[in-house]
Design a binder for these strands. Structure first.
Lengths: 135, 135
DNA sequence: TTCGTTGCAAACATTTTGCAGTTTC
DNA sequence: GAAACTGCAAAATGTTTGCAACGAA
């Protein structure tokens, strides 16, 4: 018994919001951004829909940064840079994920690989240029 | 004014616990494992010390899996496999992180790279062999 | 004796969930 | 009209923190 899915304006808006930014937003970010346009939006709805998108593969999780899970509407495998200072998540287009890596990982582990994540952590250019101030 | 650090048996035990396993444990896992030997250990202490180890670079974070942050006493850069089914985090020794990647990332982003993380997600061998049952 | 460390419990922050009302088909 | 979707608030979860007692230097 499959669960039929109905359309909803809020769902459309949430997905559009995630896909129209390169900030790799968190649920709260999406909520805050949509709230002015959709005053009766609730945070629970954002979480519920994001979870749906993840399940169906429409979006992807970039991981948890400073306690907040971050998402990406770009489901193509690509490399990320995560700033430890400001929490920014940036795409690194100059480096790409080696093609055969997933297969090699399956061979090495004997498991099934569904995704590969390659990311760097450090201080982004803006934070680095603000001087060596640690935090 | 530097903060001098005093020795503590609990701290030693926590670090030893993390370094003596390849399960990439969570704070709670460490707590549960040490509790029988150290009955008056408290979870807050585990968190506090883990945070200390992270700061000084004695251990490393592997990321958040199923809402739990996981740690690794092996600070050498290496590849991980994360099972979506059972939450296991495994080392993938057959694949290694390309050497010059951090430098290339710095060049590409203009920032300072402190670490690189390469990980696969999927179903581990044990879970995969249990048949295609989704969850 | 000094100051870092700890237990304990309360505080926090993020995410999930139950339910009653609303929207979509 | 049935079933999915949503707002709301309460609950659940993982982590942090304040404070008084404790332990190492």
């Amino acid at each position: 018994m499959e669960k039929t899915r109905k359309r909803s304006k809020k769902r459309d808006a949430i997905l559009a919001c995630i896909c129209s930014t390169d900030t790799h937003p968190s649920a709260e970010w999406v909520y805050t951004r949509l709230k002015p346009q959709i005053p009766n939006l609730s945070l629970g709805t954002v979480y519920r829909n994001i979870h749906m998108f993840l399940e169906e593969g429409t979006i992807v999780s970039v991981g948890v940064v400073d306690g907040l899970e971050r998402f990406d509407g770009n489901t193509e495998p690509h490399v990320h840079f995560i700033c430890e200072d400001c929490g920014a998540v940036l795409d690194v287009r100059a480096i790409d994920v080696p093609e055969d890596l997933n297969h090699r990982a399956e061979g090495a582990t004997g498991g099934q690989v569904s995704a590969c994540r390659l990311s760097f952590t450090g201080r982004c250019r803006d934070c680095a240029s603000r001087g060596p101030g640690k935090s």
